[in-house]
Each structure stands twice: as C-alpha cells, then as structure tokens.
Amino acid sequence: MEKTFTATIWVLGDDIDTDIILPTQYLALEHVEDMKPYAFSPLREDLAGKIQKGDMIVAGKNFGCGSSREQAPEVMKALGISCVVAKSFARIFYRNAINNGMLLLENDKLYDQVTEGDRATVTLGEKIEYKGKTYEISSLPTNLMEILEAGGLVAAMQKKNGKKVE
C-alpha cells in the first residue's frame, strides 16, 4: 500500500447505508464485477459508471450502516476506490472493509469543507491535505493494520495456513 497518494473526491452524505452501497437484489450475482454497475444506484444511479480507479469518497457520519453484507466494501474495492474518509463508520462495515483490504479513514472536519471533483492527498497514519489545509487522521490498531497490510483477511489466513498466494 502506498504511503502517500492523491485522489479525486466524490462526496456522499450522512448515514450512507449498505442498501445504498449495494441493493439486496444484486447481492447474489455470481461475481463482484457483475455487481459494480449497481453500486450506490438507489442514491445516484450513474455514480458507479463515473468513478475512476484511485478515486476517493468523502462522506458524513455513520458510513456503511445497516447490514453485514460484505459485498458493500467489496464492490467499492472493485470499483477502484482508494479510500473512504468519513466522520464515522458503522461497525460491521468497518470490519468488513479492513478484511477486504479497503482503506477507511476517520476525520470529522474534511466532509464539511470538500467540493466534489477536487483532489486531496492522503498520507497514511498522518494526514489528508486539501486546498492547502491539513486534516489529521489516526493510525489503525496493530492487529487491523496487519490484516490491511497482508492485503486483507484472506491473505492473512493463507499465510497462517501456509497456502501459497497466487
């Protein structure tokens, strides 16, 4: 994982729930690739098609609330989203995201300042720079950082099981 990267911002609101991130009727599609076009569709039908690899999402409080559907972080990862910066995250989503190697950053000020389409620079464990201002972000607990650095829980378990990673 790169320590510093710059990304284009998409802005979403408070309480972005898992039914918005991926509605139930698409959960059983066989591949995450098939689910991609429907990400965020109840809220913004065309958003999934516009997101480019490396883009970031900035949102308000309680991002990812709702169900335990892991398709939510997975489909976001498949869309190439580099990270989500939110005021706060729902618990299960947070855990699922880490398990999938999807980076989540908590900051309670950035959301109130950003404009969609702008770019911001993230330095892991330290800060986000946006329009000349610096927003602090904290580092993750060690056990979670280990999972994230391994590339997610699957890779971490493979290591534990001595399975060769393809």
Partner: peptide, 20 residues
C-alpha cells in the same frame, strides 16, 4: 453480532476470532 463472509470463513476454519 453480525460479520462479513470473509470473517465467517476464517471462523469456520479456526473456531475463533478477535473482539474488542
């Protein structure tokens, strides 16, 4: 409590998981 399927897979294999 609810978890994702990746974590469930790990529990199915190991019988344990971490909790804060």
């Amino acid at each position: 409590t609810g978890i994702g399927y990746t974590e469930m897979a790990a529990i199915l294999g190991t019988g344990e998981t971490w909790v804060k």
